[in-house]
Nucleic acid binder design. Structure first.
Lengths: 338, 338
DNA sequence: AATCATTTTGTAAGTGCTTTCAAATTTTAC
DNA sequence: GTAAAATTTGAAAGCACTTACAAAATGATT
């Protein structure tokens, strides 16, 4: 079953069938309808490979993601898929893990599959050393590259992100205004957005005239129980704190578990703020105050950006999305609502 | 840059290059190495479309999933991706939502992309009426179809699943032996596995000589807060219960929230058991006792099954994976450990 | 009705690979 | 050293589509 069968049955040439297939306007309405009817009747589907050979595109976007089982990343992948599909694009999903070699390998693989663009979910695809990002630059030489939650300056790399530094700055400042003076910061990644968040924390501390304390910046594993243990150990070593702000909801849950174990009341003895507003944040007890970085909006923006790039428009390399603090049970900010 | 460039530079024919590309053994070691060297030097990557045209396969598996942002389904997708990649397969991910029309549409789309197989993540792809599954049978006519957590009898449809009925039966029975007599069952889906779980619950109640009470089987929305409300309403209507067993961890979290609101102590006043052993289960307070259906093992089994089908082996149509009860803080079973 | 412009259609040459079959080369056996 | 067998190689015909270009059909203009 191929284009010849359709052309025979419709009594036209394969060129005409192909034109109908591709929405070419140079086909008279009569013939177009006739061809469409035959296609319908025969249940004809064009062969994507032959099509790809001619067009050199398959309307497919490659998505690179550290680990699609992480609730936050899974959300991003979901929103990307839904929105790309609206424009008729499929996604090929690759979960790379943290290893740089693997990231490179999968990126090459996507390019060899002739994807039309690559979307990187998570700033951990940006290596700290700029020279280690050459693999991205190479990819960007052949297709547009979109980074979710990261920023790097390059003509064919487009970034959609939340101002993480500002978000953490605001939240930290709010804790300080709330009377908290020893704020423990939990993070597990030194990725671009990880650094942004950390710098937001530091800025807030310094702006408030407080002193930065290295002991209050705790590098954790991405696991709630291990995070609990890490905090327990820090506390045992004499680190004092009356609030926690975490770079991920998961870490914040670890802090809640620590408080429970240490017999601390939340939020009275310990205030906790998470990040991402994931499912976890409304699952724990008390429910978690968290920064919502609007991942759905970021994903939609990324897709829209890509579509504009495809249509040859000039597109800014960076789009920043707003964020907000979702207040739940782990903080007791005065209600200053108007 | 194509196969001709390589063949010229290596001084061989394109047929030889193609053989090297496909690991055909009928190439002398010398020429093979020469060709490989040239490929390396030129940075040659074969064009997947041309390749697909000839081979009519692209080493790509289509994955159909209701909603990849659901923690449980996201996990399954992740494990599938990781294991398929070991065999050199890519995945195209489609999130369909509940609408049957959409499921059909995406399945057609995957077939038109000439995927080598389709994996359906979740038994919600099995419609209650057998005739509504013709779309699956049609797909199965052209490629192998794998269903995760569902079962239907068809020669080209392979199923990897946990014995959900048995799992719920065992857990319910354990609650009864623990002295609980009014067990509330929460579910949100009437999919194949949903029905299995429900039947396991019913069997357990009846086997124990208790009476089935329709009021104790609560159909909820897939949302923890709405579940809490649903339970609250049931309680207000006079439904009494001293234990909850839920078809999903998310619903169980709703039950924990209800207990908190109603001032009930867990597990003393109310025991709770969830399903899936997802991240949520160790996130809530107390941590959730839950049925682990070993989704990683199921996913690996599904992939292995598929590979065996590809290699033309005879493969059983159904593989059942064991499950176990992970006891955490929401139950107080006597510790009968040996 | 004849000419020209415009729209519509068809022919044929790619697109980059796989694979069959025959030819060339190498190995083995005597 | 030669014939037969086995291995290695290449020429050429697909695979199912796109698209440039030429040809045909239609419509407009006088």
């Amino acid at each position: 079953m191929n284009i010849y069968d359709v052309s025979h049955k419709a009594g036209v040439s394969i060129a005409t069938v192909s034109r109908v297939l591709n929405g070419n306007p140079n086909v008279s309405p009569k013939t177009r309808q006739k061809v469409l009817d035959v296609m319908q009747e025969l249940g004809y589907t064009p062969n994507v490979f032959a099509r790809g050979l001619g067009l050199n595109t398959m309307k497919t976007i490659g998505i690179l993601c550290l680990d699609s089982s992480d609730p936050f990343l899974a959300n991003a992948v979901y929103y990307l898929e839904q929105n790309l599909r609206k424009y008729g694009y499929d996604i090929i999903l690759c979960c790379t893990g943290y290893d740089l070699k693997n990231k490179q390998k999968y990126l090459d693989l996507l390019l060899s599959k002739r994807v039309d663009a690559v979307i990187l979910v998570g700033s951990s695809f940006l290596e700290p050393q700029r020279k280690d990002n050459t693999y991205l630059f190479q990819a960007a030489a052949s297709v547009p590259v979109i980074i979710i939650n990261g920023y790097i300056n390059h003509p064919n790399i487009y970034c959609a992100l939340c101002d993480d530094a500002q978000a953490v700055f605001d939240a930290t400042t709010k804790l300080i205004e709330n009377g908290r003076t020893n704020i423990l910061y939990l993070y597990h990644s030194k990725s671009y957005s990880g650094q942004q968040k950390l710098s937001g924390y530091k800025e807030a501390i310094l702006s408030a005239g407080l002193k930065l304390d290295e002991n209050l910046m705790l590098l954790c594993k991405n696991d709630m129980h291990q995070t609990k243990e890490a905090i327990t150990e820090a506390a045992a070593n004499g680190v004092k704190f009356d609030a926690v702000i975490a770079a991920e909801d998961l870490l914040a849950v670890g802090a809640i578990k620590y408080a429970k174990q240490a017999g601390l009341k939340i939020p009275k003895d310990l205030a906790v703020i998470g990040y991402n507003n994931s499912l976890l944040s409304s699952c724990c007890e008390p429910e978690l105050t968290t920064i919502d970085n609007h991942i759905e909006t970021i994903s939609i923006t990324a897709v829209n950006t890509l579509m504009r790039v495809f249509s040859g428009n000039d597109v800014p390399n960076r789009t920043t999305i707003s964020n907000d603090l979702v207040e739940r049970g782990t903080t007791d900010f005065a209600k200053n609502e108007i």
